[in-house]
Design a protein around this nucleic acid. Structure first.
Lengths: 167, 167
DNA sequence: CTAATCTTTCAATAATTACTGAAAGTTTAA
DNA sequence: TTAAACTTTCAGTAATTATTGAAAGATTAG
């Protein structure tokens, strides 16, 4: 396999992986493209490479910027805007973990908290609801704390931790 | 808030959370319902509670069983089949982690491995592709090892580990 | 100021994904 | 056996989500 094939394979895989995780294909592919591109790309570049429309490109680039994993850059003397992705995989992981916590885990915790705080009326089904949602709450909280650990520690926390865990 | 409201809130939240993660709403809701139900439920029960069709219920129950988080049970003297969900949240987390690794991480690792093994033709863009996919490979592998840790350790590994990490 | 260049927005449409319901299939009681 | 009770399958349809492309909105060079 050489460059062009490898690049396409990577972009496509990243795209379908994204879909699997509720991130749309175009967004994941744009990210993949920028991630492996040594230089910033313009909107035109992205459109051409991925064969997607101007509107689609614009909207998805905006989302990626909102997520904090793609940046706008200017090139001296150029009118157009250019885009780069976060190149440090650790930082990338950190940003994504943080966003997912904010968007998914926090709201879930909130609901679980509410549900498991209902008044115990003494029936079996109420007791079960309270017990199970409480357990899920604890699990989700634990997962969130782990994510936060990843988010807030220095560069290599993940690797260091693993070494510790594996010994 | 009392029982019925709390139950509905929980089922709905679990449903939309599922959607966010690429698991369809009905599947997530059925799981939620079984998870908080003290007793096994029949297909009829599930259909009525969630207002979904027989076909939909059947297909999604099958998927949940495939995932390994819902079980068929028989009730003595009853013709119908009944369903229960895995009730232990740790076990639940373990099963889900294992499935996600198998379905998502492993195939990704495979592609990343292929892509980062292409021949270095000396160009900047090829070098960048190899470098970045290699880094992603390492990250994904690390994430997978962590998941496996969760999967393969005894009951309370997750909690114990956290205590260690937090000290 | 204004025309050229570039970006964003959004209504229309396409593509994908989920759901229904009825028919076919399966199991078991009698 | 056979028929009643139950489950699965799947073609058709509905609902959701993604994409396009053209018009409107910005920005800047001259």
């Amino acid at each position: 396999m050489e460059y062009t094939a490898a690049k396409e394979k990577f972009i496509n895989t990243w795209g379908s992986l994204g879909t699997l995780w509720g991130i749309n294909k175009a967004m994941a592919q744009i990210h993949a493209l920028l991630f492996i591109s040594p230089d910033p790309l313009s909107m035109e570049d992205v459109m051409e490479e991925l064969h997607i429309s101007r509107g689609n490109t614009s909207m998805n680039l905006r989302q990626l910027i909102e997520w904090g994993i793609v940046y706008k850059t200017s090139i001296a003397g150029e009118r157009k805007e250019y885009f780069t992705s976060e190149k440090d995989v650790q930082e990338l992981a950190r940003t994504i973990a943080k966003e997912r916590s904010r968007r998914e885990i926090q709201p879930t915790l909130k609901v679980l908290k509410e549900v498991c705080s209902i008044k115990d009326d003494g029936t079996v089904k109420t007791k079960e609801l309270i017990k199970k949602t409480k357990e899920l709450y604890d699990l989700a909280e634990t997962a969130d704390i782990m994510l936060n650990k990843i988010v807030n520690q220095e560069q290599n926390w993940l690797t260091k931790t693993l070494v510790k865990l594996l010994k």
